[in-house]
Structures are given as structure tokens and as C-alpha cells.
Amino acid sequence: MSAKTFPWNGVPIAFRDGETIAAALANAGVRTLGRDPAGRVARYFCGIGACQNCLVRVDGRVVEACLTPAVEGVPVESAGEPTEAAP
């Protein structure tokens, strides 16, 4: 059992080596990933990086949670602004 975590909007999320951010968040029961840059609710959908629905921000950059491996201690945040209303 690995005790590795990364902070998701400040909350520690456990993950296993090689696991994507999306998989770790799903396992933690996180279904909505905050707002995406367009202000829509970010969420897992296609799992192969095509739909661009699971965008999150890592190191300032917008990335697909389903393609991006989780790294210990590297913060992951919602890609959009928490207050941004959906269009």
C-alpha cells in the first residue's frame, strides 16, 4: 500500500505509482473536478484525452486529468476559477 498523495485543491488525495490524476480522483470519490477554463463543470468522460472534459491545472498548466500521471506532492487544482459561472 502506497501512502503517496497529491493535494487536490488543497485536499490530499492518495494515489498509486503510475496512476493518472483522473483515476486517483475517481477512486477518492471526486466526481466533479471544479470548473474548466470555459467555466463548465469539469468531469471525466472519454478517458483517452479526446473530449477535453477533465481539464485540471498542474504547475499552472491546463492538462487532461486522464492523461497526466499523479506526482507525489505536486498540487492539482481546478483549471477554471471556482467562482466562474457556467455560460
Binding site: 477554463p37 470555459a38 467555466g39 491546463v62 477554471g80 476559477e81 466562474e84
Partner: peptide
């Protein structure tokens, strides 16, 4: 005369 442009994704802030 060619003009190249680009458009980014949304970044409202």
C-alpha cells in the same frame, strides 16, 4: 499576403 494568427482556449481571469 499571408497573415498567420492563432486563438487560445478560454482564460477569462
Amino acid at each position: 499576403r499571408r497573415g498567420q494568427l492563432l486563438v487560445t482556449e478560454r482564460a477569462p481571469a
